[in-house]
Design a binder for these strands. Structure first.
Length: 266
DNA sequence: ATGACACCTCTCAGGTGA
């Protein structure tokens, strides 16, 4: 089974790119982030005609996640348990940043869009850390219930776990994505039992999944590795290969993120 | 070996992204 994650930066603006990507690589399950739409706003016919089912979760023009599968889509769950609201005060809402379903032969796949954090002294940064803790707790709960669980956490984690995951640590000095608390929150998810399925085959430096639209970051190879597929032990053991589809970042109308693809023998 | 921000909406300005 071939699974992928991709921050699409508006599904409505790039539905045809998604269909072409699924066809080009024969992807079975795709986790999308930043669909930037309510489900009712989406025109899904091209995906349905290509043989896929879609489960989308979006509340407004911000955030939004979806799962696209041609190997089943059962027991869909929206939101993470115990996730903080934004803002973290009365009147705050649970944003559309998580959706999961069971695909294929009992694989629970999550599509996750971790909050950006904005600036280190911004309330959004504390929200990001608590959101990651809610993810760790849910991941730990699943493996405590069944250590052999087939589970994969896919998405835009908005954390560069290592210095080599950004094009310049000098550039990111004092900015989010590279701070120790964010990295510790990411490591806590890994230490709960979810291994990076791509890094062993594609170590850095210079391996990225995101390039800013501005300042010629992509042709200058100035990117960040912030999109990950983290697998439970059963999924890690079944992983047979992976790649980052850099070609998809090229040309007019590209998302600023590239898809990340993993093959699992499940 | 790639291309000079781009998406959204309470739209021509502001919020968000990283």
């Amino acid at each position: 089974m071939r699974i992928a994650t991709w921050n699409i930066n508006s599904l409505r603006a790039r539905t045809e790119r998604v269909v072409a990507f699924l066809d080009r690589h024969q992807v079975d399950v795709l986790a999308l982030q930043e669909i930037k739409a309510k489900p009712a706003q989406l025109v899904l016919d091209p995906l349905l005609e290509a043989g896929y089912e879609v489960a989308a979760h979006g509340l407004n023009q911000w955030n939004g996640v979806a799962l696209i599968s041609r190997v089943g889509l059962a027991d869909v769950r929206r939101e993470l348990p115990a996730v903080p609201t934004w803002p973290e005060e009365p009147g705050g809402v649970v944003e559309a940043r998580a959706i999961s379903a069971v695909v294929g032969d009992g694989l629970r796949i999550w599509s996750l869009y971790v909050p950006n954090g904005r600036e280190i002294d911004h309330p959004h940064y504390a929200y990001k850390l608590r959101w990651l803790e809610a993810l760790r707790a849910e991941g730990a709960r699943e493996l405590a219930q069944d250590p052999a669980a087939r589970a994969v956490l896919c998405g835009d984690f908005n954390v560069a776990p290592q210095d080599e995951d950004v094009w310049s640590m000098e550039f990111f000095e004092g900015r989010t994505h590279v701070t120790e608390p964010e990295r510790a929150a990411f490591r806590a998810v890994v230490e709960a039992g979810y291994a990076d399925l791509v890094r062993p085959e594609h170590p850095g430096p210079g391996v990225y999944t995101y390039w800013d639209y501005q300042a010629l970051r992509f042709p200058k190879k100035e990117g960040m590795r912030i999109d990950f597929l983290l697998g439970s032990p059963a999924v890690q053991a079944a992983t047979t290969g992976s790649f980052i589809d850099r070609e998809e970042r090229k040309g007019k109308g590209a998302s600023d993120h590239a898809p990340v693809v993993v093959d699992v023998d499940l």
